[in-house]
Simulated assay, not measured.
Amino acid sequence: MSNIGNRIKHYRTLRGYSQKELAEKIGVSNVVLSRYESSHRTPDNDTQIKIADILEISLDDLNGRKVKKQNEEPDALMFRDKAGFDELSPEEQQEIMDLVNDQLDFLIERKKKK
């Protein structure tokens, strides 16, 4: 997702809101929200905060800023750009990382035997 408009639309649909519902919640018209989503307008800081709060995302996520969390495991970093990975529960993320690591170990051992 390359711009804030795409991210607003992505998270709005992910959370199951129509344009009209989200527009009402953030206090703008449906037309204004449509302009945000089509990148013809950019929401001001206060509106971005409202959008992020309602969609239950951080301002960093809304603005496409990738921040490495201090306690984030190195294994999780390779999945950071995979669509949907951040929406999984920590347990589901860990399960995926474990499966990938197991597969990697298997492939490394297989290559060593050749």
Results as ranks from 00 to 15, higher is better:
residue 76 A to E: 03
residue 74 P to L: 07
residue 99 L to N: 12
residue 21 E to I: 00
residue 65 R to G: 10
residue 83 A to N: 08
residue 52 A to G: 07
residue 13 T to A: 00
residue 35 R to N: 11
residue 79 F to M: 13
residue 31 V to Y: 02
residue 52 A to Q: 06
residue 51 I to R: 07
residue 41 R to S: 13
residue 100 V to S: 14
residue 55 L to C: 05
residue 81 D to V: 10
residue 44 D to E: 01
residue 58 S to C: 03
residue 100 V to I: 15
residue 102 D to V: 08
residue 111 K to A: 15
residue 43 P to G: 05
residue 43 P to A: 02
residue 72 E to I: 07
residue 37 E to M: 04
residue 22 L to K: 02
residue 90 P to D: 04
residue 85 F to G: 02
residue 35 R to M: 11
residue 93 Q to K: 12
residue 86 D to K: 02
residue 93 Q to T: 03
residue 21 E to N: 00
residue 11 Y to D: 06
residue 3 N to D: 15
residue 104 L to W: 08
residue 41 R to N: 12
residue 2 S to Y: 13
residue 56 E to I: 11
residue 7 R to N: 00
residue 31 V to G: 05
residue 67 V to R: 10
residue 96 I to F: 03
residue 77 L to A: 10
residue 65 R to P: 09
residue 9 K to R: 08
residue 82 K to I: 14
residue 60 D to N: 15
residue 37 E to P: 01
residue 17 Y to K: 00
residue 76 A to R: 06
residue 6 N to H: 12
residue 18 S to E: 02
residue 21 E to G: 01
residue 109 E to W: 14
residue 85 F to E: 05
residue 26 I to C: 10
residue 78 M to C: 09
residue 44 D to F: 06
residue 95 E to R: 15
residue 84 G to D: 09
residue 78 M to Y: 11
residue 30 N to E: 13
residue 45 N to Y: 14
residue 101 N to E: 15
residue 38 S to C: 08
residue 45 N to C: 01
residue 77 L to M: 09
residue 70 Q to C: 00
residue 75 D to Y: 02
residue 80 R to A: 09
residue 1 M to N: 08
residue 36 Y to F: 09
residue 53 D to Y: 09
residue 98 D to Y: 05
residue 38 S to I: 03
residue 69 K to V: 05
residue 39 S to K: 08
residue 93 Q to N: 07
residue 25 K to Y: 07
residue 90 P to T: 04
residue 10 H to K: 06
residue 90 P to E: 05
residue 52 A to T: 02
residue 55 L to M: 00
residue 53 D to I: 09
residue 38 S to E: 06
residue 46 D to G: 08
residue 81 D to F: 11
residue 19 Q to Y: 07
residue 45 N to G: 09
residue 7 R to A: 06
residue 92 E to L: 12
